[in-house]
Amino acid sequence: MGHDHDHDHDHDHDHGHDHGGSELSEMDLRVRALESLLVEKGYVDPAAMDLLIENYETRVGPHNGARVVAKAWADARYREWLLADATAAIASLGYTGRQGEHMVALPNSARVHNMVVCTLCSCYPWPVLGLPPVWYKSAPYRARAVIDPRGVLADFGVRLPDDVEVRVWDSTAEIRYLVLPAQPPGTDGWSEERLATLVTRDSMIGTGLARTPEPRTTASP
């Protein structure tokens, strides 16, 4: 690897000409080398790194956001609070911190569909959705969401009626957006736990809708 000349962009060569399996192992080596260097210099604590990874692999994820949405569906006062002050309403369920410091909730309905993007990088509400999926960070999504959101929805297999107003939100500052999907019909009176099973990650970004429950095949007495 040509890393011994002093130029900020020397890794360019490694990337431009080395696609395929070897690129992955090269990244593995580079990251390991830098980690051991930064640990040796005392800049980072490897045990802190382990905890950061554990947090985002096991504790944070769309199940957090699903709980927020389910509560807003089940509890009209919580919904009102969420729409008025999402940061506080979400914090009341224990979801706070990095990339969720300033939250806004966007309610979807039969009339309005909101979709969230970050065209400049990949800003995403980590405390409620976890780390973003690759497609959210990808050029196709970042490029197209703001100009052709219905085309993006088609990539997700979603078609909205023509009279639905499509509103896109580009996360250009430190405000993070959580879409509150429309509650599926036939779910009134469901418990929050059961409602949460209908809430998908994509429905909280606005590239999907909440799941519609299967009609019950057995009649209740």
């Binding site: 992955l24 604590d45 990874i53 993006v152």
Partner: peptide, 27 residues
């Protein structure tokens, strides 16, 4: 840029080095 291509059951990280690069960046 082409179509958006969602991945079913996407893992949080696709390679071991991504975990360490992510945590190094945060740390």
């Amino acid at each position: 840029f082409g179509a958006v291509t969602p991945e079913a059951d996407e893992p949080w990280f696709h390679h071991a080095w991504e975990r360490r690069a992510f945590a190094l960046t945060l740390a």
